[in-house]
Simulated scan of single mutants.
Amino acid sequence: MSTTGATDRGGRPALTSAHQLAAVAQALFVERGFEQTSVDDIAAAAGVSRRTFFRYFSTKADVLWVESPTEIATFRRLLDEAPATEPWRHAIIRTAPTALHHPPEERTWMLHRAQLLLTVPAVQEKAALRHDEWRRIATAFVARRRDTDEGDLVAIAAGHATLAATLGAHEYWIAHSDQDLPDLHGRFLDLLLPAD
């Protein structure tokens, strides 16, 4: 995405990616509060113009979804590529943590995102659509593996369990951030996914 129009404020180099801008915004939200942080505050801290911010995001809450399309597409792709012989339950436990995994240098960004997603009401309202898509991907996968429609009881249960495990792992991680998030995610999935 273009960053034409970015400015250098206070000698700081202007940021060049949506992810970097999102990281700055999330840090401000955690430090000052979501409602107390304006787009102007984010732009100033990032060394870009207000106009540049809106080239990347429609609202300040949208910064939290900067990686969501990639994560969702990765989850769908990994399940599609799961070996036919791999039990559906094992496939979800293996792929869901992988789809949400980011490099160690993104740990602070991930922790900030989790804190905001689980504690800020204005953010939680927008989260519903992304959460629903995550759930539907798991439901559809289990239905295919069980050769049923998506109204199948086990498929629906698996979809909801996948979402609950994902949220639960992040909630636990916030309070135990010294632990490994992908490992926690896998453990939550193992606890909550139904047996076939």
Rank of each mutant, 00 (worst) to 15 (best):
A164F: 03
S49E: 07
A127E: 13
M110V: 09
R51F: 02
V123F: 08
T148Y: 01
A73P: 00
G186D: 08
A140D: 08
A175S: 14
T108R: 15
T139A: 02
G186R: 10
R12E: 13
Q115V: 08
W134H: 15
Y172L: 15
A122L: 07
A161Y: 03
L153G: 00
L111A: 13
H102S: 11
V63M: 07
K126W: 01
T162Q: 06
V39F: 02
E86T: 14
A122E: 15
A169F: 04
T162C: 15
Q115P: 00
T16F: 02
I92R: 01
A73G: 07
D80Y: 00
M1D: 08
R144D: 14
Q179I: 01
D149W: 02
F57V: 11
P104D: 13
A157S: 13
I156W: 01
V39I: 14
L78S: 09
S2M: 07
I92A: 04
I174V: 15
R144S: 07
R12S: 12
H131W: 11
R89L: 01
A46Y: 07
H101P: 00
P121V: 12
T59K: 09
L153S: 08
D40V: 07
R77Q: 14
R113K: 15
A25D: 10
D62P: 00
T166R: 07
Q36V: 01
E31P: 00
T95H: 08
A45D: 09
L189Y: 04
G168N: 09
A164S: 14
L153P: 00
L191K: 09
E105V: 09
S49V: 06
P121I: 10
R107P: 00
A169Y: 05
D40Y: 05
P13F: 11
P194M: 06
T162S: 15
R94G: 04
A73D: 14
R145E: 06
A6W: 04
S2Q: 07
I156F: 02
I156M: 06
A44N: 10
T59P: 00
A61S: 12
R94E: 12
